[in-house]
């Protein structure tokens, strides 16, 4: 078995070479499902460190993007042995870039960090109308709705989603978080969201507090 602490630390330090090295050694040992799960958890804890360092202003947006890439690479390596090993999910998030906006980089970073934190993320994609959010929330019984946008026009679209949630009587059963370049406290109030974030790391932290 590999040194899980070392692995967590290597992910936290964004040391891609080391992470890959450890994982390749691990794969050679023909690991069982339980060990694979431990290794996945260690990687996810590493992402938690990345998030903390971001909050401390030691990492910046580029580092988060790189971390997402690093984690995806790690999961890809583990895929052959991952099997049906399903870790327990801490909550369900319906995520999408709202109507009128085609940007998805921020959304994708959030997605990989939220998944690393144990959430099941249903990613609707970009330019999604309110109805797509509503339907998905109903279908999967999500606890959280995450809306992303880069353009200021996305603010109006975010508000539409919240309004539709209200009209469908669903507003009280979900938490709503908005993220992206144009959001701030004022925008959050206008939209009627529960919280906002301009970075994926603290966005995930907010979600974690909601499902505690």
């Amino acid at each position: 078995m590999v040194d899980l602490k070392e692995l967590t630390q290597a992910v936290g330090e964004l040391d891609e070479e080391k992470v890959t090295g450890i994982l390749k050694e691990f794969l050679k040992t023909d690991p069982n499902e339980e060990d694979v799960q431990k290794v996945v958890n260690a990687c996810q804890q590493g992402m938690g460190i990345v998030g903390e360092l971001f909050e401390k202003n030691e990492y910046f947006v580029g580092d988060l993007i790189y971390a997402g890439e690093l984690l995806n690479g790690a999961i890809d390596l583990l895929k052959p042995v991952l099997g049906s090993a399903n870790s327990e999910k801490v909550g369900k998030i319906v995520l999408g870039t709202v109507s009128g906006d085609l940007h998805d980089i921020g959304k994708n970073i959030f997605k990989s960090m939220a998944e690393a934190a144990g959430f099941e993320v249903y990613d609707l994609g970009v330019d999604q109308p309110a109805s797509a959010f509503i339907e998905k929330v109903k279908e999967v019984k999500a606890e959280i709705v995450g809306m992303s946008g880069v353009l200021t026009l996305s603010i109006e679209s975010m508000k539409n989603v919240v309004d539709e949630l209200k009209e469908n009587g669903m507003r009280d059963s979900v938490k709503v978080i908005i993220g992206g370049n144009p959001v701030n406290k004022d925008v959050c109030e206008f939209v009627g969201a529960d919280d906002f974030t301009i970075n994926a790391a603290s966005g995930v932290k907010i979600c974690q507090q909601w499902v505690k």
Partner: peptide, 11 residues
């Protein structure tokens, strides 16, 4: 792009 460059800068 934002993603590619973020990765290149590290790698």
């Amino acid at each position: 792009g934002i993603k590619g460059l973020s990765i290149d800068i590290r790698r």
